[in-house]
Simulated scan of single mutants.
Amino acid sequence: MSLFWRIFGLNAVVLGTATALLLWAPVTVSVPVVLTEAVILVGGLAVMLVANAALLRIGLAPLERLTRLMATVDLLRPGQRLPVDGHGGVAELIRAFNAMLERLETERATSSARALLAQEAERRRIAQELHDEVGQSMTAVLLELKRAADRAEEPLKGELQQAQETTRESLEEVRRVARRLRPGVLEDLGLISALTSLATDFATHTGLDVRRRLSPRLPPLEQETELVLYRIAQEGLTNVARHAEADRVELSLWPADDTVVLTVTDDGRGPGLAKEGAGIRGMRERALLIGADLDISPAPQAGTEIRLTVPVSRKRPEHD
């Protein structure tokens, strides 16, 4: 039954009931109206209005749920669907909306994957140029400054040595940026070594107490999955440094059933009600790329916990 006929039928039932009561009930209307008759009529009208409102509320409830979902749906939190009951017009509308969400989530995941892969390729290119071009040029400048300082006399020698030290610090900063753009240790030594290096570097540059709990007994992971785990850990630590006002942060990675769980937990001010920024939205997009679940919630004691749960497909052993 379509929405039109459903609402029409509800109103017809109410009005038909009222007409039947007027025809067959022992109720009359005098002129002028007697108080008891007015009470009966007003009471009947109130009953009709309440019954009509209740029936309309029941009939339009699916549309209200659809409106709320349309206002709050987020493609970075997939799986939000409305239950479908019956075969009327409202049910068909909900089915069409659910199918549209399915298509949009698929298209969003595909476009995000292309964008993130292009971003990683650009990061590798920039890191390579920083290492090969800028790094080598600064190394050459450093060597020239050293030779000039060795031949110079005071006070010029001290100034050249100071310039040499500044150049050396700048070279280290360029190398650090290149490592952040392209985690070569991830490709060379694996995920655990890369996360250990990331945590050590983060603690050195922020002064925060970084605790690591990284299990070495991880199941085999695809290269794309390892990169997403690394990038989300990197972005989580960056958010702690920028926004959390924390003193301590814990980076954990361990296997659990058919999943691998990564957490970044701090003792800062907590997530609060602030709107998610580009960093967290980027983490959600990366989680979608590998079908993982990202949850950001208050930590058990204080602060914020970022939890990424990655499903792991366990391959059955092959038999001859």
Rank of each mutant, 00 (worst) to 15 (best):
D85F: 14
A91N: 03
D85I: 15
R68N: 05
D74S: 13
Q80M: 04
G79T: 14
L66Q: 09
V84S: 08
R81A: 13
P83F: 11
V73A: 07
P83V: 15
D74H: 11
L75P: 03
V73F: 03
I94C: 05
L82M: 01
H87S: 11
I94S: 05
T67G: 05
D74W: 11
R81H: 06
V84Y: 06
A96Y: 12
R77D: 07
P78Q: 02
L76I: 10
G89H: 12
L76F: 11
V90N: 00
G89A: 15
L69A: 10
R68I: 13
V84A: 07
R95K: 15
L66V: 05
A96R: 15
R95L: 15
A99I: 10
R81T: 10
E64D: 09
A91G: 02
A99P: 11
R77N: 06
G79H: 09
F97L: 06
A71E: 08
V90W: 00
A71H: 02
L82A: 00
T72S: 10
P62W: 09
R81L: 06
L76Y: 08
G79P: 06
T72Y: 03
P62E: 00
G79V: 13
P83Y: 12
G88M: 05
G88V: 04
D85W: 10
L69V: 13
P78H: 00
L75F: 10
A91H: 09
A96L: 15
D74T: 11
L63M: 00
L63S: 00
R81E: 05
G79E: 09
R95M: 13
L66N: 02
T72P: 03
L63A: 00
L66F: 08
L75H: 04
N98G: 06
M70A: 14
A71W: 01
L63F: 00
D85H: 12
E92V: 12
D85A: 15
L93S: 06
V84E: 05
L82N: 01
Q80Y: 05
L63P: 00
R81V: 12
M100G: 14
V73R: 02
R77W: 03
V84M: 10
A96V: 14
L82D: 00
L76K: 02
A96K: 15
D85Q: 14
L76D: 10
L69T: 10
P62V: 03
R95Q: 14
T72H: 06
E64A: 07
I94W: 08
P62C: 06
L69E: 08
V84T: 08
A99E: 14
V90A: 01
E92D: 12
M100F: 15
P62K: 04
L63D: 00
